[in-house]
């Protein structure tokens, strides 16, 4: 099958270009396997990220045939196409080929304090009921692949916007009954560049390879902030 892959090496290329490869594809061949076949057999200069090979690390997120996907999770036959066109995650600075600069993504992720704020950590069990755990079950599936971040038009127009991944994580902790971050945590997402920039486009939910309804979590954060503003318990 023909693979058309976006290429750009800032040290060599003046402009991006595309390379075309013929790759043998069998039953169950994944996109990651196909890309590794290209590196092993045709072009060792092709760059892309990968690690776990089982859709839990989020490293191999790419834009494949017009859709955000994880290369390791995508079976070629499921694309139902005669050609596979591979781009890096859109709207992120390109380091080389399919490798994008994630520094802005991680900077915003760190800004929401993505960890449990609680007293007595490591000293005693922090009990969480099954029902409380289920309330944040979906959000815990996030693997920080940045598909949502790359697909969000608000991120494209306002680089300061925290973006869907960081806000999803903020809700993951704000909705965790063990977390004592409370209003301090909510304040981190209440600014002009926080939740209010989300206009429920739902691109993030569409792009998420883990099928997380990220938009819902952002709206839940808005509700918590609104409740706090009128004096109700968030």
């Amino acid at each position: 099958m023909q693979f058309t892959v976006f290429r750009f090496d800032p040290e060599v290329d003046r402009e991006p270009r595309y390379s075309t490869y013929q790759v043998p594809v069998g039953e169950g061949t994944t996109l990651l396997e196909a890309l590794l076949w290209i590196v092993d057999n045709v072009d060792g200069s092709l760059s892309f990220r990968y690690a776990c090979r089982e859709a839990i690390c989020g490293a191999c997120a790419m834009f494949v045939n017009g859709k955000h996907r994880l290369a390791c999770k995508t079976q070629i036959k499921d694309l139902r196409a005669d050609e596979v066109v591979v781009h890096p995650l859109p709207h992120l600075p390109i380091i080389k080929d399919l490798v994008v600069d994630m520094s802005g993504f991680w900077e915003k992720y760190r800004a929401i304090r993505p960890y449990l704020i609680a007293e007595g950590l490591g000293e005693r069990e922090l009990y969480q009921s099954h029902a409380d755990r289920q309330a944040i079950d979906e959000m815990l599936n996030c693997i920080l692949c940045a598909c949502c971040y790359s697909s969000c038009p608000m991120v494209w127009t306002n680089p300061k916007y925290l973006g869907p991944a960081a806000l999803l994580k903020a809700y993951r902790f704000a909705g965790d009954t063990r977390d004592k971050g409370g209003l301090e945590r909510l304040k981190l997402v209440a600014g002009e560049d926080g939740v209010w920039r989300c206009h429920t486009v739902f691109n993030c939910a569409e792009a998420c390879p883990k099928d997380i309804n990220i938009t819902w979590s952002i709206q839940a954060l808005k509700r918590k902030l609104a409740r706090a503003a009128v004096g109700l318990r968030p």
Partner: peptide, 8 residues
């Protein structure tokens, strides 16, 4: 303030 702008 931004929260109130959203509520209003």
């Amino acid at each position: 303030m931004r929260t109130w702008a959203w509520i209003l």
